[in-house]
Design a protein around this nucleic acid. Structure first.
Length: 238
DNA sequence: GCGACAG
DNA sequence: ATCTTGTCGC
């Protein structure tokens, strides 16, 4: 018989309830004019361990949507006490994300996350969950597929921009999107206050020849590694 | 014991 | 996520 951790079960139930209660606040329609988007911020985290304690740093890189130039970079760091559990990533990463976001001198028009949004067991991936606090439109960008209810992802054609919808229960949860030819696709989904067509368009407009990931997320990813190295060298976060 | 599993 | 160099393929 399988062991059951009652404390953990209780926690999971509480977190699941929180996610279910937030769902009614999700709106998959644009709350803005696409032509008015000036800046987009990419969000990512990196982790490391010191004496059995896990530390993390969250970096947010904001770019100018038209020129793709970096406008501002901020970061936060600290102890991580919530374990990674598939389906509950937001509870682990949001504290540092919100702390970093507060440091931005100007709010971006939209946030892109390294992880899912609506493409989630309860439509509450980190991109969607974060929007509740950031109060801005968000998009989820995942590098690997989170299988839901046994539904597999269908490989899109090997042409930049082609995609297949991830349909579950007659509803589009997200898209498997080919952003670069001959490179495996990414999995995008609405975060909040945006539709899937617009999400796809914006992600594709942020692809350059350097990565299959949209520029904001890629730059945030690179930044987390840089900041982590700095923090470790300076004996901070330990 | 085995397979699943966003980051 | 993280540990890590070279190497197979186009």
């Amino acid at each position: 018989m399988k062991k059951v951790d009652l404390n953990n079960m209780k926690l999971i139930n509480e977190l699941t309830n929180i996610q279910n209660e937030l769902l009614p606040k999700v709106i998959l329609e644009n709350s803005f004019d696409v032509n008015e988007i000036k800046t987009i911020a990419g969000v990512d985290l990196a982790y490391w361990d010191v004496n059995n304690t896990t530390y993390g740093t969250c970096c947010i890189v904001m770019i100018d949507y038209s020129t793709k130039e970096v406008v501002e970079k901020v970061y936060s760091y600290g102890e991580i006490n919530v374990p990674y559990i598939s389906g509950f990533l937001a509870f682990r990463e949001l504290p540092l994300v919100l702390e970093a976001a507060k440091k931005l001198s100007n709010e971006p028009d939209l946030y892109m996350f390294d992880g899912n949004g609506y493409l989630h067991y309860r439509h509450m991936g980190i991109a969607t969950h974060a929007s509740m606090y950031l109060k801005k439109p968000t998009i989820g960008v995942a590098k690997s597929y989170l299988k839901i209810q046994g539904v597999d992802s269908i490989m899109p054609k090997n042409i930049k921009g082609s995609y297949t919808n991830i349909v579950i229960n007659n509803e589009i949860y997200g898209r498997t999107l080919r952003t670069t030819e001959n490179v495996k696709p990414i999995f995008i989904s609405c975060g909040n206050w945006i539709d899937i067509e617009t999400s796809t368009e914006i992600v594709l407009n942020c692809i350059n020849n350097m990565s299959r990931l949209p520029i904001p997320v890629r730059l945030a990813d690179i930044e987390t590694h840089k900041i982590r190295k700095q923090l470790i060298e300076n004996d901070l976060g330990g």
